[in-house]
């Protein structure tokens, strides 16, 4: 029963004292986020290693890696998952995991060609104009 919650200590805003993200952490995360953004732009244009700059896979992985790290910071600290209940953690993780189930669709596209027949768009469309009312057959 809810009656035996003896340890309630609420701040003036109604939050549990241990749920509050310290001001110092907020500034630190903000700094890291700005640093991540600067790093992304710097790497995209001014990376000194020429061979890496022309390696699409590496550059894309780097940019996405930094983005994932920034997202991790925002979700964990700003959105309070780190201090949240177990349930909040499950929902936060579950949402991002399920996002990848959508990518099962890519299995279809890697296992078949998706090239349209050359010149198909010049063939007169059989779908328009539809004259089905006058000629039902």
């Amino acid at each position: 029963m809810a009656a035996d919650h003896g340890h309630h200590e609420y701040t003036a805003g109604g939050a549990h004292a241990h749920h509050i993200l310290p001001q110092k952490t907020i500034f630190l995360i903000f700094g890291l986020l700005l640093g991540g953004m600067a790093l992304t732009i710097w790497a995209a244009f001014f990376l000194p290693v020429k061979s890496l700059l022309e390696n699409t896979f590496f550059m894309q992985s780097l940019a996405l890696g930094i983005a994932v790290f920034k997202a991790y910071l925002v979700v964990t600290y700003f959105m309070g998952v780190k201090m949240g209940t177990r349930l909040v953690k499950i929902f936060a993780i579950g949402g991002f995991v399920w996002f990848f189930v959508l990518f099962v669709m890519m299995a279809d596209y890697v296992s078949r060609p998706m090239e349209p027949v050359v010149g198909w768009e010049k063939v007169p469309s059989s779908a328009l104009p539809r004259d089905t009312v006058k000629n039902p057959e």
Binding site: A107, S111, R112
Partner: peptide, 21 residues
Amino acid sequence: GFLVWGHHMFLSSQSVLQGII
């Protein structure tokens, strides 16, 4: 239930591999 949607698309151009899965 989230992993079976392709059985509505056996007659589309979906790949045979994914159809079997």
